[in-house]
Each structure stands twice: as C-alpha cells, then as structure tokens.
Design a protein around this nucleic acid. Structure first.
Lengths: 150, 150
DNA sequence: ATAATATAATTGTTTACACAACTAATTAAT
DNA sequence: ATTAATTAGTTGTGTAAACAATTATATTAT
C-alpha cells in the first residue's frame, strides 16, 4: 500500500478493509496478554454496556451476523467471561450477562482501547474524526439499503 | 447497528470493519455467478493492472500479508486465472501473470465493480467521497506508523 | 570463501466471516 | 385446534485473516 497505487485505492470499500485490518491488528497486539481477540472484545464490551441483551440484539449492535455471534459468545462463555440465561418470555432466546471475571477484564482493557483510539485520532482533527464517522455510517446504511433492495 | 447505539459506533476502527463487511458481502453477492470471491477479485484485478509483479508487491498493493497472498494466488492459479514464472534474477520470487481466462473474467466483472462503486457513492457528494478516501488513507498510514513504532 | 544475516515464499494453527441448512419455539392463518 | 409461516439460535462448509515457524535463495560481513 504505497502511493504509486492504482484504482483499488480509489475504492472506499477496499480502503475500509485495508485500514480496518491494520487497526484491528494493532489493537490485537495491545491485547496480547489478555487472552482475548479484538472481535471477542467488542462483543464482551457490548454485553457489559447493556446487560441482558439477547443474541440477536448483540449481533446487530456489534455488526456481526448471528452465526458469528453465536460462536464468539461460545468462546467468551468457555473463558468464563459471559453466561446465558434462557429468556423468560421466549424460550428460543438467551439473555446474555457478563460475569465478574468478564467485568474485570473489561475494566482492565477498556483503557487500552480508549488510549489506542486517542492515539489513532491524532492524525485527524476533532472535526475530521466526526466527519469520518458520519461518512462511514452513511456508507454502511446505504450499502445495507442496497443489499435489502436487490 | 441501529441508532440507539453506544460507544462502539464512535470508534472509527469498529465502523470501518462494520461498513467494510457489509460492502464486501454486497460485492460478493454480485459476483455469485462468476465463481470468485471479493478478495480473490481484488488480487486478480491487481495482477491484471500491473503484470509481472512478484508476490511481495502484490501483497503490498492489495493490502494483504504474504501468507494470505500466497493462498489467494494458489486459488486463482487452480482456477486457471493466473500463473507464476520463477523470477529470472531472483529465484526466490515468482512473477505473476494473468491468463486469457483471467483477463476475460476481469473484463466481465470490472463493470460490476464499477457499477457497485457508483451506486455506493450515491449517498455522498463527490467532495465527501474524496474526503472519505483521504481520511481513510491517513488513518491507515498513521496506524501503520504506530504499529512500526511499538 | 565461509559464515551470518536477510529476504521471498510457504505451511501450520487459530479465529472470524458469509452463506445455507437446520432445530426448536413462537405467532399467524384457516 | 391444527397447519403454516416466522423467528432465535446453531451447525456445516469454504474462505480469509494474523501470527509464528520453516525452506530456499541472496546478500553481507569477516
């Protein structure tokens, strides 16, 4: 990915993938000693933020499909970081809760994530960062609309 | 990913991943009948653009690491879309070339990619699209710098 | 010239993704 | 009330990612 590049670099989707992979790998390297992956982290964090969500909701909020969510939750459960309770009103679903161990891990790692985000933002102004988020969100919504349409 | 969301949506890395996955899946659905994945497509396209590159260069330009590139090229080779020739001056490396079949596939699918990109851009102005690319590229460079540093 | 170092590519392992097919529970339709 | 349709979650399969370790060739340092 140097500057003598071609059309691919002019594609937003391609650039998102490239930048995402780099950032994700960077975050992963900071999580090395915590025995958790970035994707697991984002799900765990989500569960901590709003406890009692069912898997479907977790999937939506963490931008993953349901199979991926199932399997990530399985791993978090194996590690003793989250647990499931069958839904009271709907026995198809499971409410997911975080364990003490999970909460402790979030408390120790959330600062790392915040610091990384702060470091990453250094290359942009406050306003640019907001613009970036806004444009990414619009692209995401628009892509979802197109996908539903056809 | 609805609007009642939390902090994760305020993280550029997270939003890039989410939007990237959606866009990639959309592109994949358009490629259904061509027996090629989006990642394979980007590598094939790259090879078509500048023939005779060695794998290391292809990896750099398509934003993948070398193992990923090796394996994607393997699949493209199995499908008869690309071939390798041992480097004349350096017998560790391989120059990769596109086959007639590969070239034909690019010709048939490149318009699909262009159309999708055009459709995706509809939600942004010309200027916004350029800004998005610019900001993504800066974030990518900055993340790379941080990664090298520590 | 030989040994040490670096580089290009590959292989192994674990994780995650997309998609399709499936099970079990719930809701709607007749 | 029974059947049909829908929904929550899971499982299977193929592809791709990151990282570490390995092989083979090139480069450098002594």
């Amino acid at each position: 990915m140097t500057l003598h590049d071609n059309d691919l670099k002019r594609s937003a989707g391609f650039m998102m993938g490239t930048a995402y992979r780099k950032i994700s790998a960077l975050f992963q390297s900071k999580l090395k000693e915590y025995d958790i992956t970035t994707e697991q982290w984002s799900v765990l964090y989500q569960v901590d933020q709003s406890e009692g969500l069912i898997q479907k909701e977790i999937a939506e909020r963490s931008g993953k499909d349901r199979p991926a969510t199932t399997r990530i939750l399985d791993q978090l459960e194996q590690k003793g970081l989250v647990g499931k309770r069958v839904g009271e009103h709907d026995r198809r679903s499971f409410k997911v809760y975080i364990t003490d161990k999970g909460r402790e891990l979030v408390q120790r790692t959330a600062p790392i994530e915040r610091q990384l985000n702060a470091d990453l933002r250094q290359c942009l102004s406050e306003e640019e960062y907001d613009v970036l988020l806004e444009l990414l969100y619009r692209m995401y919504r628009h892509a979802s609309d197109i996908a539903e349409r056809d």
